[in-house]
Design a protein around this nucleic acid. Sequence first.
DNA 1: CCAAGATTTGAACGCCGTTCAAGACATGAA
DNA 2: TTCATGTCTTGAACGGCGTTCAAATCTTGG
Lengths: 204, 204
Amino acid sequence: MNAPLSERRQAQLAALIDAAERRIAEGGMASLKARDLAADIGIALGGLYNIVADLDELALRVSSRTLGRLGEALTAASDALPLESRDDAVNRLVAIAHAYLHFARDNLKLWRTLFELHLAEGTALPTWAADDQLRLFRHVAEPLALLVPTMDEAQQALAARTLFAAVHGIVTLGLEERLVAVPLTALEAQIEWMVRATCRGLGE
Amino acid sequence: MNAPLSERRQAQLAALIDAAERRIAEGGMASLKARDLAADIGIALGGLYNIVADLDELALRVSSRTLGRLGEALTAASDALPLESRDDAVNRLVAIAHAYLHFARDNLKLWRTLFELHLAEGTALPTWAADDQLRLFRHVAEPLALLVPTMDEAQQALAARTLFAAVHGIVTLGLEERLVAVPLTALEAQIEWMVRATCRGLGE
DNA sequence: CCAAGATTTGAACGCCGTTCAAGACATGAA
DNA sequence: TTCATGTCTTGAACGGCGTTCAAATCTTGG
């Protein structure tokens, strides 16, 4: 075992993130235990802190990976559709919203940890993590721009954010199993209804 | 100190919830520590578990109180407005949404703990807690019923839930300080825009 | 082959929620 | 009043957690 240091570290980091991702997918963020992870990748307990500053950083790295996969899912949903007419734009927004719902459902625990990261009060999140978030909004902003060409860019960004947030809220409550369960198809219908209504409202 | 047991217990429970509420309002759910709370109300550490089964139950009781206050805030916002025409109904929905935003902002940490309760996998939440949630949806359902009188009750309930969820999502992302800050007035405008657009969409 | 530096190790620390044997206390009968 | 009995309260102790750091182990250039 004598690969160059940095390479070895890189491999250890990747293995660690893999293990953490598996653990979170299985049992949520609450099951991210230092001792388990160290055992998973075959190092001593203290060794974790040579790879990663603390478990929060690790959760953040897993989240970044999850955000990446989410972005791919939204891209796949977008690219399948044309974007020429206003109708196309609306259909794309619906498709993106549906893709968001399905990603959240298929990656429930990982998706939830995206919003359970509580960075220690003072510290801001790394720029690479913030960038991932902005990329998501852009998925929405692109078709939206076609619907409201008169808005300036800041307004468009804000509108995209709002639409994203609304869909996010519906998905969040819809997948919250401590409330009355809503069938997936009903959830899809509600999301579509709400996106179309909002788009209609945009024109006025 | 010789009040009847149940009375004494009731007082201890109230004091405990008070202390927990103060702690959460100050530092979020993460600062709900058994030893601090025991000191706050002047009992021994172990004594907590005579009053409450565990800290989760305590967080739930604080949340119930918070939901109660939220309900009052929404009621106050509703009662200030007439409810006769369709326009009245829309205005009420906007007012309720705005009241929700302001409550969340003014009670940030307490409001957030409403959604951070992670009951141990298997156990369902007590009925008294579930009822509080349904009461909230009813605030939205009442004016909504006036807008869509043709829907049956189940459909109306679902629509109310969806509208509530959409507003909730906008508020959640809007108050998330790890993203770009959005001014309060902009948030209000976005919420109003989205509620009105949705209402317009309802008619079609 | 060795010395010096880098890396890994796991025992130990401090903090946490929760438990439970032991002590303090109240109550009613004698 | 005195004591026995049942109830409530106490805080030391337990097991588990994230994190640290002196010591052990490896790696490497001379």
